[in-house]
Design a protein around this nucleic acid. Structure first.
Length: 585
RNA sequence: GCGCCCGUAGCUCAGAUGGAUAGAGUACCAGAUUCCGAUUCUGGGGGUCACAGGUUCGAAUCCUGUCGGGCGCGCCA
């Protein structure tokens, strides 16, 4: 149950009534009218901004509109109090019966509390990670992985039908280098002394691939044409790398539904890149022409030549983009034409593409493709994950796959643990850069907010364990909320916790709507903080503790609240892919 | 040179399509808690929301400019 939308419904109805009575202009737009949580709890349970928003449009004074609205709302059986305050806010307080229904609805199905139907079952695809299969994953990848995963979960909770996809860049010059590097490692395994030339992949992680190639193919492979060798080396290396990447992702708790191969675009029955380009050509968006020399690169090897170009400037890009290289092969960008053509064929009408901030410059042309191929009908959202500066003891850690030096994701996860990594990465807005200090995370893991939230959950679990010893015949059915229970929750801390709970559906929906999963961990932290605060007051005032030895009905009422909070923490953490432990060790 | 993002407490960051006296954590200071479970709690100081204009009942939020920072810009992937 979402109390905010329920009240919004009442407000809408009241405003409609005022319109038809002639108290407000009949054609008055209600855009921007919303139910908010008051800044100060003393203001009430909910605040309505209608009078402020409508005043100008209706050419009336805010206070006058507020008074009219108040007169309507005060008749509602759920509304206990309604006051006009400040410049024209309407502060509402709900009857216990309404809070009781709310609490009951949470307890009836804690796992689905907060989840809504904002997405209305719409199919969406979230593409994330898509790390090149040229080496194991490093820490820099994990923000996008965790963010994409949480975004997908939040969208699902908001009622979208989500497919999680990984685009495997298994075509192009880079993976050919990878294949050639694997062949070098194979020759090494066969006894040769080798040197890894500039531009190849020197990382030791290719040694096992070389060993395996030597075993399965033997020296005979080296007799074959080089292209064939590379192809075999490439296939073996990619297979191994993808297996490792999947294992790393699993360690992080990240899973994809689809691994889409770039190579498959051209190796299937039809060349989908060619098809995509043909579609664009039919729309008059492909032409042969010259590109201007890029600015800011004076002394380079720029060669002016006629080439096949896509009119991405018609969709807001800076320059048109090349599709074919001078050697006749597709550019990387052409692959994206094929890939997005394919996505549209799979009839997704909304894509999310989680990108690293180093791809910002690539964004306009990607949007151009989707817009062109779908005639502007597909939504394409590209959340940006900013850099994770990896630091150890205050010193930045250099990362380069090509040089073979990086902090492996798997090392970090096993060192720090999955939960802190995920929670930390998710607490910040994705487009702000963060420092990830390995030494600090390990040392100060006790201060990590994730433990604070998990501890709140564990505490509540312990309440139930203890309640069962105080009341041995405890029947779960007694913990059910309702108006009777809420009437017994008279403490301000308990009421405040109820109000915070009521915000959860709103937080989830806004996280999905704004594509900002970080709102969820921040909310959970707030809820946990409020619980700890209330809990600590039980030290000074034992009568505030959840378990009242001599008062069964009061205990049951408080357990209702405790159960609702515990369920909410648990479901929120599970959306984040973080464990909700029943005890801390 | 151009594009995108950012500038909020000493530090790290929140701040929902513009709303009430700008908030947390951390650090610092002062206290409480052998408790329903350790990593808990309470209070305090600390702000020209980078700067300057503009829009309006009302701006950290929107617009313009300046300064400062980050990431990008190619027939690379």
């Amino acid at each position: 149950m979402n109390l905010f939308t329920e009240i919004a419904g009442k407000v809408d109805a009241a405003l409609a009534a005022l319109k038809s009575a002639g108290d407000l202009p009949a054609d008055l737009s209600l855009d921007g009218v919303e139910v908010q949580e008051p800044r100060d709890a003393a203001h009430g349970d909910f605040a309505v901004n209608a009078a402020l928003v409508l005043a100008k449009r209706a050419s009336m004074k805010p206070r006058d509109i507020a008074d009219l609205l108040r007169a309507k709302l005060i008749d509602d059986a759920d509304i206990a109090a309604c006051e006009v305050a400040g410049p024209g806010f309407l502060n509402l307080r709900l009857e216990d019966a309404a809070w009781g229904r709310f609490l009951s609805s949470v307890l009836a199905d804690p796992a689905s509390f907060g989840k809504g139907n904002f997405g209305a079952g719409k199919r969406v695809q979230v593409e994330y990670v898509s790390a090149n299969p040229t080496g194991p994953m490093h820490v820099g990848h994990c923000r996008g992985a965790v963010f994409g995963d949480a975004l997908a979960a939040v969208l699902e909770a908001a009622g979208f039908a989500v497919t999680r996809e990984y685009y495997v860049n298994d075509a192009g010059a880079q993976v050919d280098k990878l294949g050639a590097s694997a062949i070098l490692r194979m020759r090494e395994a066969l006894g040769e002394t080798i040197e890894i030339p500039e531009g190849f992949y020197p990382g030791a992680y290719l040694k096992p691939v070389g060993n395996q190639l030597a075993e399965t193919h033997g020296p005979a492979l080296l007799e074959k044409p080089e292209a064939e060798q590379v192809a075999i080396g490439r296939a073996a290396a990619i297979e191994t790398m993808m297996a490792e990447i999947k294992a790393d992702l699993a360690r992080l708790g990240v899973h994809h539904d689809v691994f889409f191969s770039e190579r498959s675009l051209v190796e299937g029955e039809t060349d989908q890149i060619a098809t995509g380009i043909a579609v664009l050509r039919d729309k008059g968006l492909i032409y042969e022409g010259h590109l201007p020399r890029p600015k800011g690169h004076e002394d380079d090897d720029w060669e002016d030549r006629e080439q096949t170009l896509f009119r991405s400037t018609e969709f807001g890009d800076d320059v048109d983009r090349a599709l074919m290289k001078s050697d006749g092969t597709y550019t990387y960008f052409a692959g994206d034409v094929g890939y997005h053509y394919n996505k549209l064929q799979r009839s997704f009408n909304h894509y999310f593409n989680v990108l690293g901030s180093d791809h910002i410059g690539y964004l306009p042309r990607l949007k151009a493709i989707v817009s062109a191929l779908s005639d502007g009908k597909a939504d394409y959202t590209t959340p940006i994950c900013n850099l994770v500066k990896v630091v150890r003891d205050g010193k930045p850690v250099q990362m380069s796959k090509r040089a073979g030096t990086f902090v492996a994701l798997s090392d970090v996860v096993s060192e720090v643990g999955r939960d802190p990594v995920r929670f930390m990465m998710l607490m910040n807005k994705s487009d702000t850069p963060i420092d990830f200090d390995l030494s600090k995370v390990v040392e100060q893991s006790k201060d990590n907010p994730v433990f604070y939230v998990q501890y709140a959950h564990a505490r509540l679990c312990s309440v139930f364990r203890n309640a069962k010893t105080v009341f041995p015949q405890l029947d779960e059915a007694e913990i059910r909320g309702g108006a009777d229970a809420v009437q017994l929750l008279t403490d301000q801390g308990e009421r405040s916790l109820l109000q915070t709970l009521a915000r959860y559906p709103r937080v989830l929906e806004s996280a999905a709507r704004e594509n900002e999963p970080h709102r969820l961990p921040r909310y959970l932290y707030e809820l946990a903080s409020e619980l700890h605060g209330h809990w600590a007051r039980g030290n000074d005032s034992p009568q505030l503790r959840f378990i009242a030895d001599k008062n069964r009905s009061l205990t049951m009422a408080r357990l209702s609240l405790a159960s609702a909070i515990q369920g909410t923490l648990s479901s929120g953490l599970s959306l984040l892919g973080v464990e909700a432990p029943s005890e801390m060790r």
